[in-house]
Design a protein around this nucleic acid. Structure first.
Length: 858
RNA sequence: GCGGGUGUGAUGGAAUGGUAGACAUACAGGACUUAAAAUCCUGAGGCCUUCGGCCGUGUGGGUUCGAGUCCCACCACCCGCACCA
């Protein structure tokens, strides 16, 4: 009799068809059952599934399938984050319409998705570039506008003067446009903004309630929102020109005011701009500063530079003390008042600046024990102890001589308020969300510009405002700007001739509410109240840590704004109950070098191992191996899931990406690891076949096998519920080994293999279905109830207790599980290793941790 | 530069403050085979004077009966920095 071999290609197609026919993943509202909404961050349709996607969606699938098996009504939808720059780049480079390119990519990726056997409800699929979706987004925009959550103001963008286009930060390389190579300029445009800052305090405070979010994400968001308490006051300018009489500053360290040595203003500060008009040198300096991109990182890393305006500011606490006013490139107009006072002794940036321009450095405070302290005056670094640390104030003006920074700041603010010189204020680092993009492939902002009525919102009945199809990318700039036919419209207010807004929305807008749309993807309004009430919130959200701040913060804001405009219930203002951030899939880079020593990269399949050395298959040339690098096409270290699935099957790919590393950490893809995963699944398949052919004769040690089975149920359930997938899989390996060596009878072995299939089903659903069917399981394993560990089978009679002497392991002791502390102590003192160590004396201390360990201190 | 994280054998990693290295990969030895592949079995952190002992979780300190785990400082790498998604 020949035993069939494990052929995933047949098995997987068969069960995917069975699931699809039974429509078991189609979610329907059912108030009788508890719901569970699992969502993985939807992909950008780049055209091909990446192995990182496989990991992300495999994790979500484990959660979804496990919840389904434990009785929940599961919603597990999928869609496409389909607007964005790559489609326009493709249009420019390949002369293909962004829409055609995007939808072709979606078709391709959807086929690839289908091979993975994910428990997705495809009936809810949408792409954010579908007019139906972005039309509802336009409706949301109008409601936000009506509610005062949207406004216009000027903001700076990266401008490429050759391509005549706005550049994203990532399109600026070393201050030049990536395509044109032209020096980038900062340019001011009137742009649309969401008033996210109105929710600063609430978004910060509500982080406390997000118990199932990673602490690091909450911390990052809290720091991003950046609540600070500080002092706002004005410097009077000596003999000031009109309009520059006062410089308003904000500081979080008013206690260091007696160490001030200059006043700094941003190059974009109104006074800097005013002075520019009759100071060519300053104009040149400001222009130079404005040549930098808009990225904060770039500004921070740039060399600190300043321009002395010649103005002098009076110190608020000493009218005779005058400080020079500089324009400085490191001061952001967006934060605080766009002006600061510099205290070099207690701020590294100010110190760098002061040393460069030869400004005085004056310490305001020093450590309580100043013995080893090198003051910044004498070449030391800026002294910046935590605000909670008590220090000696050398130049105090409020509060005691010895106090914490916190106390001194409070005292300083009180001093200014009492004297009427300034006020304590709370500020946030979080800026309003600029949503305007001067691009074609995005959601059009539904407003018109009328010469008579000004900026007028579109009427909802005219939505969606669709993107025009007939556009070309052969000229620089935004195709919408030069599409006169599309722009021409009538004013919704007066009916006169008007022009459409040509800005489209940031793609973050699209992804800020898709989770809500999935609850009612066909609704004629953005959401449907009953569906939103039933399905929201997302119970488990899964995605990359790179979205820790922006996407998640914007989504939290959007949910609040949608509640304020009646599109979501109050209970859904925090849309994601639990968040999990998974790591990347990495891969070794294989490289050789050309004659100039520049690296040449090689695809993994062109490399092989010979005698422990990696070499090129073709030439035998030795290859350098750079382990574990982020996958990138240019480094040729990408692994294509399609070929992996074709070779080994989806179950192997899923098993491997889940098995090798903890899910929050990066996983390194290795060919040997993937092959090992396949071999293991084959072993399980063969084991199942062997058990199916067993006679009914009784064996021995049934009880031991079943005890092990129940322990495995407990451990795997715990692992799956706590995102310990790799640990759960290790237990499944161990149980497979136990089962394959077991001498138990056929009935026990059948029970064990069916249980193993069930525990594997969330990770390798196709193989699990096959084993289940072979052993006469009831219906589909996908619908079978999750096994529950029998507590009685988990109890042990005796346990092994390690014995430590002075904290080092010196022996062990077999004791009955229910032996009490004094019983254990007696046995420990009798143990030969302890006797030897005591050498007739008595122990100094005896620590017994029941069920854990014994430590004897001698 | 600023904010956040990670660091354990050759490799991926396991370990409620309690036996460091589970499980797996690669490797070595053996069985089966004419041979190989596949499969199965066995071994293995390093060092030493090997039925025993010392060292060992990025580096250096600290807390504790006991530290991979907690605290402080440093180093390396990764993520984010508001127009990549």
């Amino acid at each position: 009799m020949t035993t069939p071999r494990y052929t995933p290609q047949d098995i997987e197609a068969k069960w995917q068809a069975a699931w699809s026919q039974a429509e078991i993943f189609k979610a329907q509202r059912d108030p009788q059952r508890p719901k569970y909404y699992v969502l993985e961050m939807f992909p950008y349709p780049s055209g091909n599934l990446h192995i990182g996607h496989v990991r992300n969606y495999a994790m979500g699938d484990v959660v979804a399938r496990h919840k389904m098996a434990t009785g929940y009504n599961v919603l597990h939808p999928m869609g496409w984050d389909a607007f964005g720059l790559p489609a326009e780049n493709a249009a420019i480079e390949k002369k293909i319409h962004p829409g055609d390119w995007t939808y072709a990519n979606i078709d391709n990726m959807k086929q690839q998705f289908a091979t993975l056997g994910l428990s997705l409800d495809w009936s809810r699929e949408f792409a954010t570039c579908d007019p139906d979706y972005y039309g509802q987004q336009q409706a949301l925009f109008l409601d936000f506008l009506d509610k005062g959550l949207v406004y216009r103001k000027n903001a700076v963008v990266n401008w490429d003067p050759v391509d005549m286009t706005v550049l994203a930060n990532e399109q600026v390389e070393n201050g030049r446009g990536w395509r044109s190579g032209a020096l980038v300029e900062r340019r001011e445009l009137t742009q649309w903004f969401f008033k996210i800052s109105e929710y600063s305090d609430e978004l910060l405070a509500a982080l406390d309630g997000l118990d199932n979010w990673p602490a690091k994400v909450k911390l990052m968001q809290a720091n991003w929102i950046g609540k600070s308490r500080g002092l706002q006051f004005a410097f009077d300018v000596v003999d000031a020109p009109a309009g520059a009489e006062q410089i308003e500053v904000y500081t979080t360290r008013p206690d260091t005011l007696m160490g001030a040595s200059f006043v700094g203003i941003s190059p974009d500060h109104p006074i800097a701009k005013m002075l520019e008009s009759d100071n060519a040198e300053l104009a040149a300096f400001n222009a130079e500063c404005r040549r930098m991109g808009t990225a904060e990182e770039e500004l921070e890393k740039a060399e600190k530079r300043g321009f002395n305006t010649g103005l002098m500011a009076r110190h608020p606490l000493d009218p005779d003390w005058q400080l020079p006013v500089y324009v400085a490139n490191f001061i952001l107009m967006d934060y605080g008042t766009g002006a600061i006072f510099g205290c070099p002794a207690h701020d590294p940036r100010d110190l760098e600046f002061a040393r460069k321009y030869d400004l005085p450095v004056t310490s305001v405070f020093a450590p309580l024990d100043a013995a080893d302290h090198t003051a910044p005056e004498t070449g030391g670094e800026a002294y910046t102890p935590p605000k909670t640390e008590s220090v000696t104030y050398l130049r105090p003006f409020a509060g005691g001589d010895q106090q914490t920074g916190e106390a001194a700041i409070d005292a300083a603010i009180a001093h200014f308020e009492t004297a009427g010189l300034g006020q304590g204020v709370t500020k946030y680092r979080l800026r309003d969300w600029g949503l305007s993009r001067q691009r074609y492939w995005g959601c059009p902002i539904p407003v018109v510009h009328c010469d008579v009525c000004g900026v007028v919102p579109e009427r909802k009945e005219n939505l969606p405002i669709k993107l025009p199809q007939d556009v070309s990318f052969d000229k620089p700039g935004n195709p919408l700007d030069r599409h006169d036919e599309w722009r021409a419209c009538s004013c919704p207010n007066c009916g006169g001739a008007a022009l459409r807004e040509t800005d489209t929305m940031d793609t973050f807008v699209d992804s800020s509410w898709y989770y809500a749309r999935f609850t009612a993807p066909g609704a004629s309004t953005p959401t449907n109240a009953e569906d939103a009430a039933y399905w929201m919130n997302v119970d488990q959200y899964i995605g990359g840590i790179e979205h820790a701040i922006l996407h998640l913060l914007y989504s939290r804001f959007f949910a609040r704004a949608m509640h304020a405009t009646g599109h979501l219930p109050a209970a859904a203002v925090e849309p994601f109950d639990a968040l999990f951030t998974q790591g990347m899939v990495t891969h070794a880079i294989y490289q050789t070098r050309d004659d100039n020593g520049r690296p040449i990269y090689h695809l993994p399949e062109t490399v092989e191992s010979r005698d422990g050395q990696m070499v090129l298959k073709d030439t035998g040339e030795a290859v350098e191996v750079i382990p574990s690098a982020k996958m990138s096409k240019s480094k040729k270290n990408v692994v294509d899931p399609v070929s992996i699935v074709a070779e080994y099957g989806a179950d192997t790919a899923r098993w491997f990406v889940l098995s090798d590393s903890p899910p929050e950490r990066d996983v390194e893809w290795t060919a040997s690891g993937a092959e090992a995963a396949f071999k293991h699944l084959s072993r399980v398949y063969n084991l199942s076949q062997k058990i199916a052919q067993m006679g009914d004769a009784a064996g021995s040690e049934d009880d031991a096998l079943l005890r092990e089975m129940h322990k495995t149920i407990r451990d795997v359930s715990l692992g799956v519920e706590s995102f310990g997938f790799n640990a759960a899989i290790a237990k499944l390996y161990a149980f497979t080994n136990t089962l394959s060596k077991s001498k138990a009878g056929a009935a026990a072995q059948r029970q064990a293999i069916k249980c193993l299939a069930q525990l594997m089903a969330p990770m390798t659903p196709h193989l699990a279905e096959d084993i289940w069917a072979l052993h006469g399981g009831d219906g589909l394993i996908a619908k079978a109830p999750w096994p529950i560990a029998d507590e009685a089978m988990l109890v042990e009679d005796s346990i092994t207790l390690p014995i430590q002497i002075n904290g080092k392991r010196r022996g062990e002791l077999e004791v009955p599980a229910d032996l009490d502390k004094s019983g254990i102590e007696a046995m420990v003192l009798d143990h030969p290793a302890v006797q030897k160590a005591l050498d007739g004396g008595s122990p100094k201390k005896l620590i017994v941790v029941p069920g854990r360990i014994v430590n004897v201190v001698v």
